[in-house]
Nucleic acid binder design. Sequence first.
RNA 1: GGCCCGGUGGUCAAGCGGUUAAGACUCCGCCCUUUCACGGCGGCAACACGGGUUCGAGUCCCGUCCGGGUCACCA
Length: 494
Amino acid sequence: MALDMKYFEEMEAKIPKGKVRTRFAPSPTGYMHVGNLRTALYTWLIARNAGGTFILRIEDTDQGRLVEGATDVIYKTLAECKLDHDEGPDVGGPVAPYIQSERRDTYGKYARLLIEKGHAYYCFCEKADSAEDSGDFDRAEDPCRSLSLAEAQARVDAGEPYVIRQRIPEVGTTTFRDAIFGDITVENKTLDDQVLIKRDGMPTYNFANVIDDHLMGITHVVRGSEYLSSAPKYNLLYEGFGWDIPTYVHCSPVMRDAQNKMSKRHGDPSYEDLKDQGFLTEAILNYVALLGWSPRGDIAEQEVFSLDELARAFDLAGMSKSPAIFDIEKLTHFNALYLRAMSPEDFAKVAEPYIRQAVKDEHLSVSEIAALLQARCEKLTEIPEKVAFFQELPDYDMELFTNKKSKCTPEVAKEMLSAAIVTLGAIHTWNEWNIKEVLTGLAEGMQVKNATVMWPVRIAAAGQAVTPGGAVEICQILGKEETLRRLKLGLDKL
RNA sequence: GGCCCGGUGGUCAAGCGGUUAAGACUCCGCCCUUUCACGGCGGCAACACGGGUUCGAGUCCCGUCCGGGUCACCA
């Protein structure tokens, strides 16, 4: 089994050097967790902050868990979030392919190289034999570990099924450095001889990751902190090959509460779910960025960041070591901030479908209704119920006419409405200025405060106590005819 | 259970040996006002606990407790 050393030399020659290179390496399981999205964001930010390269790699080594269409969700989400990748399965690049299942041969070759170097070995044990349950394991118990290469090779050649395991030193310690957690040292005897190549010939995540990260020239390995305890084994692998060790960046998880990670199973929202719930991509990214990272120095108090600003401000020193609980209320607050910061035109555009969901009447202006809504909604999805009254006057209780602060009672309302119907009816040009003029003039003439006439007019026009916008705006949008119809209706009922 | 990592208000968080312990969300008041919002102002609320080290500790060390991760031929 002569190793083709030339192959390895060629692979080495292809590795880009000199620039920061990061990779987002999801396994295609169907949707984008909030935690995944955040990892993708941080990975992208590290690359962009350094003027480096951001790579997308698909990790599909587990054949049993492939989900149809899952990679499309990944592409779509990254594109929507503007986390553009410079290299990947769809755009290619100097170290293609970027899908692990297409790199299968490579892993096998490197595993063999590692065996040659003495840091791995063939293991012929049945699954059950090596699947020790918790507690101490004794790696010396695995008879395959001490097989000579020649013996093992003979059994392989004879067609016996095998896996390839990493040979961890039985004594000593291994220290690795993480950009967030610092130096961490563990005793080698607590590490197991993990499987590198599975019985089906596929590499495990742990092996494929190291090989690909090296072969793709990744300088910063960003991943969840669940891999922290495997990191010493990765170090041993890099050292076994004689490769440079990348900078590890282990991110703590996003939690649903103090004891559980966010998970679809618990009904926690994925990125797609949040979009469906009416959240803006920019707001989600902004919130999620701050969930685990915070700005330092003179921008320590800044909370609103565009993607570009994040890329400029991002630094590893601001990363948090502890898990963070996802708070939908704070996300909602960010969403409201983004909604309000939009130009009225842009807001009207995103709000339109939600407005039209409830307000079908084309005479009712989307842009005018949107203007009322902009400061008053935190999520797009709450729009329809807020504006439904424009389309159809709800049934309402006459008690709504009672309002202490406005000094209004049903009796007062009756008086105000009949007067308002007359004066509003006399308006020729139906606009806000005229309506306001007429109504405040009425209040002045009747020696009451503005609120005393505005309250009943608004109630009669809208049929509900709380409305986006005041009496004047609502009447204006409704139009003269409909306004008068509603006011008369109110008067009749009183 | 072994190993690893954490622990500042309910939540996200600043803080790097000397601060009246920031800021944001939430909640509560007040102002603005044509309802509700927006905006403005104010308020409630925290260094897990016990020992050290030090003139001085949220900040350094040790222990306890609590939480998370991991211990797969899943990633």
